[in-house]
């Protein structure tokens, strides 16, 4: 059986007195596309850094494709876009790309790499003269230069505009379809929702949820029922309802069982005017999960 792409157990990372990662266990199989979600300080970057061998964990082990992190990087198994990674001054894009490609045992053919990452025409450009989006694309090209089986992306789209972001995730989906394992940390919930087949929510250095984005959503807050009500409508003691709010003639009910909730509302003779039932957004879920863990 082939080893997991990523095998993290009991990972603990400290920055001085701050406990950044608090005993995380995480297994990611080959070919998975996994989003690491969570607010600032949740431990996303520290986890990514530990996986890349950029820091020494206080405790726990990390195996990357059955190797120690530094060995996996040396062997060219990993490509990464770092949040605080950068390009050298006094160098041209083509030179940097050439240098990095040559360091991998099986580099991505140059023309195809340039086309895939959309950096055509930037070859002779000094790194200092790139826009934020161009920079990110060049860094992506560096991450992909060795056709690595595992990609680690730490907030990769933070400097991109909407269009750049869309193109970026199209590329990621193509790579995932080819069998590349993609692990990315992000603030952008819609990206996790659209791209990842698995979402791992981190808060306070721990994993607070792990599953498909639908699972993460449903595990938390059930559904939201919204309807227009008169002042005298009785909204107490409804089955399944976790919370009920009224604002300016609109009631917002969070319920684990919308069917039962609606049946009782009908029994009470409350008209279901402007009725709206929807699942919690991933954003709601993450907010609930992460504030819950922080408490």
């Amino acid at each position: 059986m082939p080893a997991n792409a990523l095998d993290i157990s009991g990972l603990t990372v400290r920055h001085g007195d701050v406990l950044a990662v608090d005993g995380i266990d995480l297994r990611i199989g080959r070919g998975e596309t996994v989003a690491l979600l969570g607010p600032n300080g949740a431990g996303k970057s520290s986890t990514v850094s530990a996986v890349l061998g950029l820091l020494h964990p206080a405790a726990g082990t990390v195996r990357v494709l059955d190797r120690a992190p530094a060995d996996a990087v040396r062997a060219g198994c990993v490509g990464a876009m770092l949040q605080h990674g950068g390009l050298p001054s006094e160098a041209r894009v083509g030179e940097v790309l050439h240098l990095v490609r040559r360091s991998y045992p099986d580099p991505w053919p140059l023309e195809d790499l340039v086309a895939t990452t959309g950096i055509g025409g930037l070859h002779a450009r000094p790194a200092e003269a790139l826009s934020g989006g161009q920079r990110q694309r060049v860094v992506l090209a560096l991450a992909l230069a060795g056709q690595p089986p595992l990609l680690l992306l730490d907030e990769p789209t933070s400097a991109m505009d909407v269009e750049g972001r869309r193109a970026f995730w199209t590329t990621m989906r193509e790579l995932a379809a080819r069998g590349t394992t993609v692990v990315f940390a992000t603030h952008h919930l819609e990206e996790a929702d659209a791209v990842a087949d698995r979402v791992v929510v981190l808060a306070g250095g721990r994993v607070v949820a792990d599953g498909s984005s639908a699972e993460v959503r449903s595990a938390v807050s059930g559904r939201t029922v919204r309807l227009s009500v008169t002042e005298d409508a009785d909204l107490t003691a409804l089955p399944g309802v976790l919370s009920a709010e009224r604002q300016a003639g609109t009631a917002v009910l969070t319920t684990t069982d919308p069917e039962a909730t609606l049946r009782v509302l009908l029994d009470r003779g409350i008209p279901l005017a402007d009725l709206e039932v929807r699942g919690a957004s991933l954003e709601d879920a993450v907010l609930t999960l992460t504030t819950g863990a922080a408490r």
């Binding site: 990993v78 770092l82 050298p88 045992p105």
Partner: peptide, 13 residues
């Protein structure tokens, strides 16, 4: 600039 960090995640020892 972060270049040393970037270089650390390539196979360049």
């Amino acid at each position: 600039s972060g270049w040393l960090r970037q270089l650390r995640v390539t196979p360049v020892p």
